[in-house]
Design a protein around this nucleic acid. Structure first.
Length: 482
RNA sequence: GCCUCUUUAGCUCAGUUGGUUAGAGCGCCGGACUGUUAAUCCGUAGGUCCUUGGUUCGAGCCCAAGAAGAGGCGCCA
């Protein structure tokens, strides 16, 4: 007999009533020596299996324990109990994998996320983590689906890069040289000309520059792949290895760019709302349970599903950096000196300021644009007509409640002279990036793009507090287990 | 990298002013149970009190150093 999957069985109950079936899965609960809640991973839901101790050997029944793996042969019947409409009356149980509960770390009860993080090889078996990783999958699919159906081409940017001018953070070196005795040049430095690639190479910190190459040929492209930062960041929203989505579009100005980012974010959140209802309910319930004993002002202002619906049905607020600064400086907490950092024009906004804008002032996602030139990257396009001492660039950040910056993007500087000038200002040798300058020299055009941290948006959608709980095997400083 | 907090049974945590044999709930194990929904009921076992050093007649508790974890900040996505 062919094995049937639980998802198929539960979505076509009538079809299988009174039919013999075979199915395999893991025991989520075994009640009253009689009722098994069985999951095979095809759905969040479990199917109830009834074992009759007249037909099933007692020694076998003793081996039906939490998370043991079993195969069932039986008949689908209308359930006699409440809580489920069908169940399987088992004729035969086969143990596929015993579970030694004396030494198994998981327990059929709520466990802390910190403990589960140390059990990464088991944590996907829990309801919470199962829901998170199902949603992560759905969102990855939604990303490709969105871009594909809107005429974008998926561009695979390199993971190993020889470019060291991307300026997005500390990099991980890729080398095959002997760590103890590397070849040295005459002045005593490591001689990378003898390295595998004949030059110093690193893991990528961004696929943006390569995406620009794609955009200037294919029109609209996006990258979606692993990205690496060797920063010693110890926070709930940073990883050393994370997945980044970077669309890049020819002929888009900063406003087209913001329209795309907003529409894209709302679309993938909508996709989860429509396709991951069970998963969201599990996570929503967990948050309510966690916050039950918390003070009211520390609880989330909205339920998880409610807040996702809110974000997809309300436009993001759009303001300039200068306007944002005004709002902060005129705010009550700023005047009462409740903020740790003061601000003047030209300073970057601190987390506390961004949080105020998003969580207190507007109470929804905010897009801040036109940042001071001095605090932004060399490739961002300088705005025209700004005061000489208050020059800005066409950059934009999207800030979300709870997690801060999820998107950072800009219109790129397409004017060759301006770009060279800027590179010299910040100390990047133009000759090192000839190919990048060539894009301006030979048939360049206005273009824009942004980078979106995939885990950040998964974090927002799942409501998980720590980014290490939304990637299966987190990589962070001092953390590379599994 | 900086700041704060935490570390006691498999898990989550109590542990009074430094004082004899370190406790609970859940889980595990054993038993009961044929309509349960995180089943329920009864019983047993289970400890390098993170590590090292110090103070003290005596340290889970005080001091110092280290380790691991969490949260906040900075850097960013």
């Amino acid at each position: 007999m062919k094995r049937i999957e639980v998802a198929e069985l539960l979505s076509n109950e009538d079809k299988y009533i009174d039919q013999p079936v075979k199915l395999s899965g893991w025991v989520k609960a075994f009640r009253n020596n009689q009722f098994i809640a069985l999951s095979d991973g095809t759905t969040m839901k479990t199917i109830q299996v009834v074992v009759n101790n007249e037909s099933i050997d007692e020694s076998l029944i003793k081996r039906i324990g939490f998370h043991a793996c079993i195969q069932i042969m039986g008949t689908v019947k209308k359930s006699l109990g409440k809580g489920q409409s069908i169940e399987i009356v088992a004729d035969n149980v086969l143990i596929l994998g015993d579970n030694d509960l004396g030494t198994y770390p998981l327990q059929p009860k709520r466990q802390t996320l910190e403990f589960l993080r140390e059990q990464a090889h088991f944590r996907m078996r829990t309801n919470t983590m199962s829901a998170v990783f199902r949603i992560r999958h759905a969102m990855a699919f939604a990303v490709h689906n969105y871009f594909n159906s809107n005429g974008y081409h998926y561009l695979h940017s390199p993971i190993i890069t020889g470019s060291d001018a991307e300026g997005a953070g500390e990099m991980f070196r890729v080398t095959t040289l002997d760590a103890k005795q590397p070849p040295l040049t005459d002045d005593g430095k490591v001689d990378f000309s003898e390295d595998f690639f004949g030059k110093a190479t690193n893991l990528t910190v961004s696929g943006q520059l390569q995406a620009e190459i794609g955009a200037l040929a294919l029109g609209k492209v996006y990258t979606f792949g692993p990205t690496f930062r060797a920063e010693n960041s110890n926070t709930t929203r940073h990883l050393s290895e994370f997945w980044m989505i970077e669309p890049e579009m020819a002929f888009f100005d900063i406003h087209d760019n913001m329209d795309l980012a907003e529409n894209f974010l709302q679309s993938i959140i909508k996709y989860v709302l429509e396709n991951c209802k069970d998963e969201l309910e599990v996570l929503d319930a967990r948050i309510i349970e966690t916050e039950k004993n918390m003070k009211k002002e520390l609880r989330r202002p909205m339920g998880l599903i409610e807040s996702l619906e809110f974000v997809t049905s309300h436009e993001f607020e759009r303001i300039t950096y200068t306007e944002a600064l005004q709002i902060i400086m005129n705010s009550k907490p700023y005047k009462k000196k409740k903020f740790e950092y003061m601000v003047t024009w030209g300073d970057d906004l601190h987390s506390e300021h961004e949080r105020y804008l998003v969580e207190k002032h507007f109470k929804k996602p905010v897009i801040v644009r036109d940042y001071p030139k001095s605090i932004k990257a060399f490739y961002m396009r300088e705005n025209e007509g700004t005061e000489p001492d208050k020059k800005t660039v066409a950059a934009m950040d999207i800030l979300f409640p709870g997690i801060g910056e999820v998107v950072g993007g800009s219109q790129r500087e397409e004017r060759l002279d301006k770009l060279v000038e800027r590179m010299e200002e910040v100390g990047i040798e133009p000759a090192e990036m000839q190919w990048y300058l060539d894009l301006r020299k030979f048939g360049g055009c206005p273009h824009s793009g942004f980078g979106l941290g995939f885990e950040r948006i998964v974090q927002y959608v799942t409501g998980m507090g720590n980014i290490r709980d939304v990637i299966p095997f987190p990589r962070a400083p001092k953390t590379a287990e599994f």
